[in-house]
Each structure stands twice: as C-alpha cells, then as structure tokens.
Design a protein around this nucleic acid. Sequence first.
RNA 1: GGAGAGAUGGCAGAGUGGUCGAAUGCACCGGUCUUGAAAACCGGCACGGGUUUAUAGCCCGUCUAGGGUUCAAAUCCCUAUCUCUCCGCCA
Length: 428
Amino acid sequence: MLDPKFLRNELEVTAERLATRGFILDVERLGKLEQKRKSLQVSTEELQASRNAISKSIGQAKAKGEDVAPIMAKVGTLGTELDAKKLELSALLDELNAIAMSVPNLPDESAPIGADESENVEVRRWGTPREFSFEVKDHVELGENLGGLDFKSAVKLTGTRFIIMKGQIARMHRALAQFMLDLHTTEHGYTEAYVPLLVNEDSLLGTGQLPKFGEDLFHTKPATEEGQGLSLIPTAEVPLTNMARDTIIDEDDLPVMLTAHTPCFRSEAGSYGRDTRGLIRQHQFDKVELVQLVKPETSMQALEELTGHAETVLQKLQLPYRTVVLCTGDMGFGASKTFDIEVWLPAQNTFREISSCSNMQDFQSRRMQARFKAKSAKKPSLLHTLNGSGLAVGRTLVAVLENYQNEDGSITVPEVLRGYMGGLEKIG
RNA sequence: GGAGAGAUGGCAGAGUGGUCGAAUGCACCGGUCUUGAAAACCGGCACGGGUUUAUAGCCCGUCUAGGGUUCAAAUCCCUAUCUCUCCGCCA
C-alpha cells in the first residue's frame, strides 16, 4: 500500500500518477473521509485522555485513603460516550484502510507512460532466431508425438489447463528447474529455500494478492469465524517475500536474496479462451522464483541485476529473447517498475513472456511491516522488495522444444542441460 | 488424537488490579579513561498512530491475537493461535 500520510497530503498528485496506470482514485470521497477521520480521531483521543486522567486520580486518592465517590461520579457517562466514539472511529478507519489496500502502487518515474501492452518499450534483444529449413511444429505437436505431453489424460484426471509429462520430457522439465536453481545459487548469490505451498490470508495481503485478486487463487480451506483460510500459492513470491513480514532485518544482512522452485497455482479467472492450446497458460505450473529484499536506495539497481539473472538462464540455454519495460498501464498492482523477458517461440513466430521482474519498492513491505535497521538510523525503515521469475519452467520447456526441434520431430538437448539428463543429447 | 505447562522490549527475564511502557542483565549506540583496544565508570536505547514545518513537545494505543469484567487490566474471565513436555499414531 501507499504511505497513508503521502496519500492524504498529496491526494491530487497521487491521483494524477495513478491515472497513468488507468486507476481512478476517488479524490472527493477520500478527502471527505479523511476530514471526518481527523476530527473524530482527535476528539476520541481527547476523551480517552480525560478518562485516563480521572482513573489515575482515583488510584492516587485510594492510595491516600481518601473517599473516591466524588471522583467516581465524574466519570459518569464518559465510558459509554467513549465506547460509541471508538466504534465509530474504528469503522471509519476500516473503511479508509480498505481503500488504501486496494490502491495500486505508484509507477516509478522511469516507467514509460502508456495505456496497455502495445506501449511497452523494448530495451534490448539477445540472440538470433534460428532459420528453419523445414516447417516448424509447435510444442504440443512435438510433445505429443514424442509421448511426453499428455493433455487428454490430464483433462480426465482434473480438467483443462493441466498437464501430464512423461519420460524424457518430464525429465527435461525437471532438469530445467535444477539448472536454474543451481545457476542462481552458485553464480548469482541466492539462497535456496523450500517453502509452504499453502499460505494464509495475512501472507496474501502482505504481497498484494488480497484483498483484490482472490478470484485468481485456489482456496483450499475457507476462512472461518476464528481461523484464516489457506490458499495455494500463485507464485513463490508470496512465501519468500512474507518471510520478512513483521521482522526487522539488520543492515549487515542485506540484501536478502532468495530463490525457490515451486509449483504455482492460478485459477486464471477472466482469461477463458486465451492461450487455451498447450502449456502456455496452465492452472498449475512450475517456476523458479527470485526474490530480493534491499535497501531503498539500491532497489532500482537491484532490479536491473535481478532481470539480468533471469536473462542469464536464457543465454545459457541459447534461447533468443527480448526484454521490455512495461508501460504504466500494463504493470501489475504492486509494481513500481517491471521488466518482462519474452522468449522467441518459432511456432508462434513471436516473443512470449517467460519472466516478469518487478521492483515493488515499499509497497509490499509497508503492508508486511518488513523493515531493516541501519546502524546510523534511530528507527527502522521499510525495505524495498523485488521479485522475478527466473524462469517459468513450463514456458522454458516450450521454448526449448520449439527452438531445438529437428526435422524428424526429435529435440536436441541444450548443452547446459545434458549434465542433468545423464548426458542425453537428443530426445526422440 | 489425549494430558499438562507456557507466550512480556533485539535477546534473557522480573512483574498477579491503580503514576507499569514495564525492574534487572546481556546486546547495541554515545562519552570519560587509554598510544590503541579491553576493562571500569557515566549517559542513551521498544514500536505504531494522532497533532505539528518538526525524526521538538503534547496526546492515544500496544506486554501473542480477539472478546469480556472494571472508574482503571501485562495482571482477573472466555475464545483462538502458537510453543514446549509426556502418551498415542505416523513418512
């Protein structure tokens, strides 16, 4: 969430900047609520202060053995009046908080202004798409012909948008994840983590999936009167980032760099009809996630580095890609700046998103109260959080299958994966 | 699943109805001393919110969380969560 002080003091500026990402802030309503809040909060606290003072004097009088009856009379209806005000105030604060929690992050100044993905800006391109001397097949055809992708059985077991992988394709899928994890831990300095795949509501609020995007999640255990519900993670960003929730990290331990390989579960609500063929958009997919917790002044530099870490995976796999910076209108809810990495898919003759790397600045850490303490500082301050896919494993498999296909339908195994596949050079 | 014990500041650990936001120790930050360091001594040191130009004052809240009793709750009552010990079960 945004800094509430900033939001109320710079209401107009905030509204303007949010408008660039297509979010309309109800300035008038907020202004009115805020005015009400101020007077109500001040008067409630004044009432509280006077009650505290009277209670204290009762204690002092009793200690001296004086008669407390006259003071007790003074308290009178103060209690009921206070309770009513408190109730009114907390309802108002809840309302304001609900608004604050559903306002997206401010775009960074360096993010290009635009309405939708057509206005994203390419920042670099790597590799040259291979020239094929034969007609390319897409990954569905390749995978099914090799007996490695079984969409039909997955539908029987569960439904659409699930997959069963078998044999060397399943092995390559596993190899890809292993390769990515090893790369990030041994060469990029990340610490590997194994994390829960079910998370509670506090965690989802912390990273921003809730309260607005509950529809995109699979909820396994509903919330009850007392207990929080549990949901399957849509990305390892949720558990990894929330590790810092309600903690104060020592300056010397920064930056925190974490990676995890997990399945991710997304209901893909509202995307019916899009990418229905193949592995591109699944309800369950594997991803190796990168998360960094850094000091504010280094976060933009860290975003460049993190994006580079994800790009390295594609470079080592010799897969052509381009990197685009998202325009304000295409960025996710919590992001201040995002780079998407798009891999070349010959069967679609286009680049498709394979990674999204974002600097959330203090948007998540404010929700999570994830802080650090600098030696020179008196008080702890909010961290900046970053995350990125490094990479989406299923989509990487798609890219390998399509880019490394041979005329006979076999797949050459990329060099860097062979060590993970018992030296295998070719599938099929 | 059964039985019991607990949850207090960065950590350890006092506090069982009234100047308690909380003793004390450790850690940490400053200072004195010292060639430097250590030791010793002196001082400081929780977090959030409101008001405010103010990271100055003043005020409110916070002793796991949520309810309750009371003029007044870290302290009494209820519920939840978590931790520990023992038994059972299990990978």
